[in-house]
Computed example of a mutant assay.
Amino acid sequence: MDRGSDRQADGDGAAQPPDGLAAGNTAQSEAWNGDVGEYWVRRRAHQERRYRRLTPRLMAAAGIRADSRVLDIGCGSGGTALEAARAAAAGTVLGVDLSGPMLAEARRQAAAAGLPQVAFAQGDAQVHPFGAAAFDVVISRYGMMFFADPEGALRNIARALRPGGRLAFLCWRDLALNAYLTVPFEALAPYVPPPDFGAPGAPGPFSLADPGRIRALLDGAGFGGVSVEAVDEPMWMGTDEDDAVASLTAMPLTRSLLDQAGEEARGRALAALRETLAAHRGPDGVTLGCASWLVTAGRR
């Protein structure tokens, strides 16, 4: 198992990009080693609660055994890697991500949980030298949509997976089906510029929304037995509308949009957002729908 690329910061504490970075992936690296990565570190516990209905679906589909060698692509602050390590108690887990800040948090969480079988590497999964057939299972929770070269990334991941090994990942379906984003941004729309979630098929959260594209990419990379299952679950947004507003407005994307509005427009936007989210408050807090694909495949 490759345990290299563990650099976290330079002498001034600034996050550094990984040594090996695929062409076209510089913007993603800068984002995840900047404000975006820092945001998700601060919101780690909130994020895990948001995904509490989704993470078990991924883990059940992965079929991790006690002695499995597991690779977690886009592991972020370590939530899924730690879950995999608990399942692979006699195995190994490697979490890989572009984000130095998030990996530093993942290491802290793993140490606190007493899970020595999990390690983390800062790297670009499109080109990272994982080693041939080094893993039995590859998982990813919303980490597969950001590749500049998805064909190359999946070929590299396939090489790292032993023949007969299993791939399981979650990715988003169409934006229009994901109320956890459409509802808040529709509330903000009269007052701030529209968000840019990327062109169809371009690197971004909805690049794998087309199941036909998923199947074609996996087939071309050497996977068979592909299953693309629709998963619809409520997304927890916050304990109440104020918590949900605080979380949403701390996102670098939302903060940037609000910064472009005048003071009066910004105040109206926040009031509209709070009113909208209050209408979705229930016994479990504020929840909105989310729509994902749960994808599984085997290495041919």
Rank of each mutant, 00 (worst) to 15 (best):
A132N: 02
A216R: 15
P129Y: 04
T92N: 04
P252Q: 08
F169L: 15
V36T: 13
A148R: 04
W293Y: 11
N25R: 12
T239R: 15
R173S: 09
L258K: 03
R215I: 10
A199T: 08
R43D: 01
T296L: 02
R7M: 11
A119V: 11
Q109S: 12
Q117D: 07
E105G: 00
G11Y: 02
G11M: 09
G298H: 14
D149G: 02
D19H: 11
R173K: 13
V70Y: 12
T254C: 14
A153G: 13
I139K: 06
A110H: 00
G212V: 08
W172L: 14
G37N: 04
A125G: 06
A221D: 06
A261N: 06
Q117P: 01
R166S: 14
R274P: 05
L94S: 08
E83D: 15
G152V: 11
D259M: 04
Q122N: 02
A265P: 06
D12S: 15
A187C: 06
G225Y: 10
L273N: 08
C290K: 13
A246N: 10
P205A: 00
G224M: 00
A45I: 00
P163M: 01
M237N: 01
D6M: 10
L94V: 11
A23G: 06
D259W: 00
L98H: 01
Y180K: 02
E229R: 14
Q8T: 14
A278F: 06
Q117M: 11
S77W: 01
R159E: 12
T296C: 09
A45K: 08
D232E: 15
V96L: 13
P116A: 03
A148H: 02
W172Y: 15
G74C: 00
G152I: 12
S292P: 08
L181G: 09
R108I: 07
Y39L: 12
P211R: 02
A189S: 07
L273K: 05
A90Q: 14
P18S: 11
F185G: 10
G198A: 06
S256Y: 04
D6G: 13
R7N: 11
V137G: 01
V245L: 11
E105C: 06
W32Q: 01
F135N: 09
D67V: 11
E275D: 15
P101Y: 05
L248T: 08
L71I: 02
A112Y: 12
R141T: 00
G282Q: 03
V245K: 09
W236F: 03
T276M: 01
L103Y: 08
R3F: 12
N25Q: 13
A216V: 00
R43Y: 07
A230P: 15
G224S: 14
V127A: 13
G4F: 05
E105A: 13
R162Y: 02
A271E: 15
A272Y: 07
A153D: 12
P200D: 05
S207H: 09
A168V: 06
M102P: 04
W40E: 05
M235G: 05
G91P: 08
L273R: 08
T249N: 07
T92K: 12
V36A: 11
V118I: 04
I64E: 00
S5L: 13
A244Y: 04
G201E: 01
A246Q: 10
L288D: 03
M59F: 13
T55I: 15
D284K: 09
D259T: 07
